[in-house]
Design a protein around this nucleic acid. Sequence first.
DNA 1: TAAAGAACATACCAAACGGTATGTTCTAGG
DNA 2: CCTAGAACATACCGTTTGGTATGTTCTTTA
Lengths: 205, 205
Amino acid sequence: MSRKGVETREKILDAAQAMVLSRGFSGVSVDKVIESLGVTKGAFFHHFKNKQDLATALIVRYAQADMDYFNEALARGERLSNDPLQQLLIFIGLYEELFAGLAEPYPGCLLATYIHEAQLFDEDVENTINNVFLTWRQELLKRLKVIAANYPARRNVDLPSLADEFIILIEGAFLLSKSLRDVKIVPQQLRHYRTYLEMIFLPDV
Amino acid sequence: MSRKGVETREKILDAAQAMVLSRGFSGVSVDKVIESLGVTKGAFFHHFKNKQDLATALIVRYAQADMDYFNEALARGERLSNDPLQQLLIFIGLYEELFAGLAEPYPGCLLATYIHEAQLFDEDVENTINNVFLTWRQELLKRLKVIAANYPARRNVDLPSLADEFIILIEGAFLLSKSLRDVKIVPQQLRHYRTYLEMIFLPDV
DNA sequence: TAAAGAACATACCAAACGGTATGTTCTAGG
DNA sequence: CCTAGAACATACCGTTTGGTATGTTCTTTA
């Protein structure tokens, strides 16, 4: 694909994603997407064989970017400390920083948008979404187990669901943040998650 | 409105809500709704002046039911204990029980579905949704303040966002629960919220 | 019981929709 | 420079969509 071709495809994906995040996938028509960009149907259907193909391309791209940032934040945490608990707390802090730096509410998570219209999509899309969640759970759980083995937990909490709580707080906070148009909600909740972990694993702070 | 009329209207609302929760609002056509019920367009547009009117009726009904259960759970908690902290913990426990008793994942929150298609709806709908969230925040915050005044908090946590965390955990857990088809996720997260509150306000347990 | 309005049913319509067929322009490689 | 395919543009099509106009049946109440 030529450079120009890649650019057009990305432009379509960018515009479509922004529209999907505010109207849902079936609330966005191909006509509206191309109209907003000044390109034609010929261009659109050259890059995507149909609207479903756009749906797949959007979620695959989003999931990949999501995982990339996740892995990078984990790696940065592990570079900044040698202590497993501190590594995780730093990781959370990095996300806190990320969302604290936004001027307006995060436009929304594409994974969440798709889940709310789940019946429109095929199994591939569903698996792409679930793979993100399962990877996050798995990677965080792995680290929580190491922490639990090294620190006397004040409470006997369930670790898999404690791992899930990270993504759950983010998704829930995105929602409330978007509805109330309050940018602070996401970092606030991440702060609570950090405090929770500290209270579990650092008894005397 | 006659009894039959009310019944038909409710039937339409029920069917529409179930479909909206799995396909989003714009993914549901009036034709599909009436087809699933075996009623005609005449019936539909007799009860709703247009599709937007259906959207409003759906969210108003859902928000009302939501608030009703919320207030009932608060009242039950306050009947079951005289201690402000215990009252709140019981309240959370009641929600935990509610969702632990489900055979399959909760089909989804209509508020959340609408937020993901926010641009389709008018200001009234937006206010209906935000009023629910703000009422929950306000009512829970009121109780958290009483608790904080009576118990020495181990940490200096932010109370408004701690109130928000309840609805945020539920919304986030709904999402993950629906995507992974795991019924346990919602009660698990409510359990964490209870544990978090206990660790904050009950230092020596 | 008669009248009036509620509660539907039937048939239809214009616009928007996803998609296709076909033609043109651009661009990279031999 | 030539050519083949990528990268579009234009025009069109069948279906689905939300919505309406009009007619019929049921139900309540004076």
